[in-house]
């Protein structure tokens, strides 16, 4: 095959010119705001000695306010309501109590009416979607070897088979992501199971449409129905994403599992309870 040099380079240039970039946001304004905030902070805080006294004062004030706030039951619920499942923490701001949705023939869950917050889904950004540039893709065999815990695969549904794509990263602990893609579209996922070792990542904040306590193999679990926004932070890194699907999170033997799919709670629990170590 002979690509003429000009041909490929010309096509690249033409393609680059036609690429529909998103509109450039007003970064200058945002940067200015950040700089102004930084200046105000610096001016207000002053020298180090003053900062220590101010910090002590602020801490004392916070203690007083916190004590007062926690004496009010309604406020207390608002302030402290979050769910911690393994390494995942879900914060639910401004909660309102609503009944849990009706469900039938669930394996062994304990359902608790929990907190509901309606969230209007915003369109996801990103016109260019590809897995090709994603870091950490590996084989199942390699993931099994490198993971510090025993990887498990669902034995239900029987036809599910092995995951189509496997990703792995290690940030203080292994994170393995197993992706089953849609048969008709290998770029779209049908089921994703995260298996996360302790210490891998800090947590996530979310405000899902429906959030329920349930159980997987007798262990506490949380079921979240999308769409909801996740905000995950770890140090200075910050990640915000709209989650469209349903998520089941639970912990077994110190490993946090996060199952994301379009399946119902009943199906998700059945898949979760079917996990068996890879032989």
């Amino acid at each position: 095959m002979n690509h003429s040099k000009d041909s490929l380079e010309d096509h690249l240039r033409a393609f680059a010119q036609e690429l529909p970039y998103p509109p450039t946001p007003d970064i200058a304004w945002a940067v200015r705001q950040e700089l102004v905030k930084g200046q105000k902070r610096a001016t207000w805080l002053g020298p180090a000695a003053s900062r220590r006294w101010i910090a002590l004062g602020v801490a004392a004030l916070l203690l007083v306010v916190l004590a007062g706030v926690l004496l009010v039951p309604g406020v207390r619920a608002t302030v402290i309501e979050f769910l911690q499942i393994g390494v995942i923490r879900i914060f639910v701001p401004e909660p309102a109590l609503t009944p849990a949705p009706t469900m039938s023939s669930i394996t062994s869950p304990v359902h608790t009416p929990v907190l509901t917050q309606i969230l209007t889904p915003s369109p996801t950004s990103g016109y260019l979607i590809s897995l090709n540039g994603l870091q950490g893709e590996t084989t199942l065999e390699t993931a099994i070897q490198k993971a510090s815990f025993t990887l498990r695969l669902p034995s239900y549904p029987e036809k599910l088979g092995k995951p189509d794509r496997i990703f792995m990263q290690d940030l203080g602990g292994a994170v393995v992501i197993l992706v089953w893609t849609k048969a008709e579209n290998p770029d779209a996922a049908e089921l994703i199971i995260y298996q996360i070792a302790p210490g891998s990542w800090a947590g996530e904040k979310g405000s899902p449409h429906i959030l329920e306590h349930t159980q997987v193999n007798g262990q506490e679990a949380v079921w979240a129905e999308g769409p909801h926004v996740l905000v995950m932070t770890n140090g200075e890194l910050n990640f915000r994403r709209l989650i469209a699907g349903h998520v089941l999170i639970w912990v077994e033997n110190g490993v946090t599992y996060r199952l994301e799919s379009n399946f119902s709670l009943e199906q998700a629990i059945r898949i979760a309870e079917s996990l068996i170590p890879i032989p």
């Binding site: 950490g136 990703f167 994170v175 992501i177 994703i192 890194l237 990640f239 994403r241």
Partner: peptide
């Protein structure tokens, strides 16, 4: 970063691939 890693996977969940242009 791990967050980027999650982000791309998340976008795959139910989003049909779009044409570049």
């Amino acid at each position: 970063s791990i967050w980027r890693f999650f982000g791309v996977v998340q976008r795959l969940v139910r989003e049909e691939p779009r044409l570049v242009s």
